[in-house]
Amino acid sequence: MAMTLEQLRDKYPDAMVDTFGDSPELASELTTLIIAGKKVASCGSLRSWQEQERLPQPGGYSIILNREQQPVCVLRTTGLFLTRFDRVTPEMAMLEGEGDLSLDYWRQEHQRYFQRAGYFHTEMELIFETFQLVEVI
């Protein structure tokens, strides 16, 4: 039987609760990649991070929700660092596990993502997060 969000909060009392992407479809796609072990990193704009009340910390846990807002897995943040969109490397793009794993694909899709969010510039600052899968729910 799957654990409820309440049970997971009891098990990981300081865990953040989060989703990936900006649509139910993207959330589903990205969580599938995480569970398959293909996605071990993510990034967000520094601007969006500064608007959050609580931020991931190295060693901290996150309970990840799917498109139905149900918990699907728990992640542990292994690293955080600041970079710029135009300084993302092919290795970093590959860690995100999306598409054909190329830097070109990463740039195209992330530019679209940030444009949908209302802010994109090739020199925009990003927070790049690496994580490990702790538990699949």
Rank of each mutant, 00 (worst) to 15 (best):
L103R: 11
A117S: 08
L5H: 03
L8K: 08
F120H: 11
G60N: 03
L26S: 10
H121Y: 07
S42M: 01
A2F: 13
L101V: 00
V72W: 01
L133K: 07
Q52S: 10
H110Q: 05
Y12F: 13
D14F: 06
F128L: 13
G37S: 09
I63P: 00
S48R: 12
S102F: 08
I63F: 00
Q132N: 14
I64S: 04
F131H: 10
G21F: 09
P24V: 07
F120P: 11
Q132H: 13
Q132K: 15
Q108R: 14
M3A: 06
I35R: 15
G79N: 15
V136D: 10
I127K: 07
L30G: 09
Q111P: 04
T77M: 05
F81I: 02
E125M: 13
L26Q: 15
L103N: 10
S48I: 11
T89Q: 06
A93C: 03
M124L: 15
Q69N: 14
A2W: 13
E123Y: 02
T4F: 01
Y105C: 06
E129C: 07
R112Q: 13
G97K: 04
L46S: 13
Y113L: 14
C43Q: 01
T78S: 05
V17T: 12
E53N: 14
M92W: 12
F85Y: 08
E98Y: 11
G118S: 08
G60F: 01
L33V: 01
D14W: 06
T89P: 11
F85N: 05
R67N: 14
I63G: 00
V136F: 08
A36D: 15
L126T: 08
S48Q: 14
G37R: 09
Q132Y: 04
M16T: 02
R67V: 02
L82V: 05
E109L: 04
H110I: 02
E25F: 04
E109Y: 01
M94H: 10
Y119A: 09
L26F: 04
L75R: 03
L26R: 12
A93R: 00
I137R: 00
L82C: 02
P13Y: 08
R107D: 05
L65P: 04
M124Q: 13
L55E: 00
L133G: 07
E123A: 14
F131P: 06
S102Q: 07
T4N: 09
M94S: 12
E53H: 11
T31V: 15
T31H: 05
H110C: 02
S62Y: 00
N66A: 04
E129T: 05
L133Y: 01
Q70L: 15
R67E: 15
G60E: 03
A2C: 08
E29L: 12
Y12M: 04
A27P: 07
L55S: 10
Q52K: 12
L55T: 11
D18I: 09
G97T: 02
E6N: 12
R112N: 13
Q7C: 05
D14M: 07
A41P: 06
P24A: 05
A27H: 02
L80K: 11
V134K: 06
Y12D: 01
